[in-house]
Design a protein around this nucleic acid. Sequence first.
DNA 1: TTGTAAGCGTTATCAC
DNA 2: GTGATAACGCTTACAA
Lengths: 351, 351
Amino acid sequence: MAATLHDVALLAKVSIKTVSNVVNGYPYIKDSTKTRVLEAIAALGYQPNLTARGLRLGRTGVIGLAVPELRLSYFAELADAVIRAADRHGIGVQIEQTNGDRDRELALITSARRQLTDGLIFSPLGLGNEDAALLAVGYPLVLLGERIFDAPADHVTMRNVEAAAAATRRLLAAGRTRIAVIGAHEGEVYGSAALRIRGYRDALQEAGLPVDPALIRHSDMWHRANGATTVRGLLETGVPFDAVFGLNDTLALGAIRALQAAGVRVPEDVSVVGFDNLDESEYSHPSLSTIDAGRDEIADTAVRLLLERIAETGPKAPTRRVEADFRLVERESIGPDRNAHHPHNRQDQPA
Amino acid sequence: MAATLHDVALLAKVSIKTVSNVVNGYPYIKDSTKTRVLEAIAALGYQPNLTARGLRLGRTGVIGLAVPELRLSYFAELADAVIRAADRHGIGVQIEQTNGDRDRELALITSARRQLTDGLIFSPLGLGNEDAALLAVGYPLVLLGERIFDAPADHVTMRNVEAAAAATRRLLAAGRTRIAVIGAHEGEVYGSAALRIRGYRDALQEAGLPVDPALIRHSDMWHRANGATTVRGLLETGVPFDAVFGLNDTLALGAIRALQAAGVRVPEDVSVVGFDNLDESEYSHPSLSTIDAGRDEIADTAVRLLLERIAETGPKAPTRRVEADFRLVERESIGPDRNAHHPHNRQDQPA
DNA sequence: TTGTAAGCGTTATCAC
DNA sequence: GTGATAACGCTTACAA
């Protein structure tokens, strides 16, 4: 059906090699033949068969991206950024969803489908640091997130501890001292939850404030419903609090919802801050203060590192680790900064 | 590096064909040879090279999905559902983002990257019905959405008119008579916006109410910010209204935000209803009433139709058109149904 | 029941 | 500058 190099060669009355040379921009071709070939290509609507090229070259021009699930806004926005970055390099992206399930994650990294991609950007959720050795796979791999540190793979991560400390410090600057955290993961040492809580503790200690375990609320899932439920639970305990730090925006948005439903005003009674800077956080009511942990930079970097690995021919460079920059995005939900001498400097004030 | 059929054959002391037979489950193989081959496969960690298989078979086991952008929640949730559906068939999904740009959409359908996929599920936004002929592509194609009707391709769509009429009728049942619509597209005849507005008009006429053009507000983009801006514009005109029908949930959520910021109570002063039933709509404040237009069913059906086309060998079946079912999801933002005799029948009441 | 060999559409090595 | 021709790893007639 589709025209092949062979068909073009026949029509242009040259060899198949010459057509290939033209297609691949080989410089030493007589202008007249080149023109003839180009005409034949146009006439037949020839397009190179990428599968055949992939077989020959050992590269397909497609990378894989494995995330827990796209319905989680963070991963949708991450995938969006990865696809854009890859597209700038002329590379396609095949997406896998793991549901954060360890078995699925394990199956995925050795799946035959990996053969159709030149490398994988992988954001694990079920695997942990103890699984690091399993990630010594035979193809280029870039890890995202905080679940695994010691793997023999490049790693792009965010400054969880520092960013969480910055968020907490800003709550303290708003005059809050009883800051609840929602979304903690029981017994976790690494992982986003644990690291962000470490930053929270750091900031409290730095301010000479105690860390009240009653204010650290668990929630395995980080969906909106969990944020709401967790805050309702907190309200029921009667433990006083004047701020909520949602370990991600989705939790924080759920928290705002539950607070308002309970007649608690945000930020007058309780300040709220999240983490991730989702698109929608700018449009919640009140708009959500949050940490922009560098999602787009992470996507760009992950794609760049992966493509570098794929292009690598000789000895492998040592594995690299990159931390993206973060910034605090101040919006309505946090309340004024009492230490601020220049309130007009505040960012991201919605109209 | 990776083991091939050849390596396995060597180790098992059989021909390459026999190994292939084992791998593909060919039944007539002596048990002893089969065991030997299986052992060799395990010993070498052999995995079939899917690129080579794809070249030989003309099928890659991957389908493409082209959507405007994943950061739009609707498309993230759609992509999630498509990936799940494809995965149930052992098929991978490569995602392309068009940004709703006509040129990108055009480039995409003829891109060489199509060669790497067995077919495409395409949700156009820039192309219109006048481009239908361009969709006579040489590979299996399933269209989504309302932009193109006359294309020579299978088509999975939602019942926009009927669903929008149902939403409008429910607003009327809440005692609303001045129902604003936000998200209209100037001059559009087909397309989701036009169809949903047609449903809106139908319901009003059915109720003997006039259609006030001043209540139909345009917004090309359907982001949250547009919903907010459009409602602010409406408030500024001073035109009275007691309900807002957002042509999608994102617009409706932005609208709620703008109404609240202006001191308008939802649903006491103004009822709001959206369209799409995003995950997050259940957790807004107030929770958003909306239309579930059958997103998951659409994904499942699209994948099924596409795989049927891919499997097609002989003459092509005529193009098919499928409309997914819809349902009205009643939540807080709409206010009570004055006609309802059985209020306890209302669905989806959040806790 | 198993083996041989052709060929899918490329790219790459060499001659010419 | 250009042309044969051999892989890449697989499936599949056709033989044996």
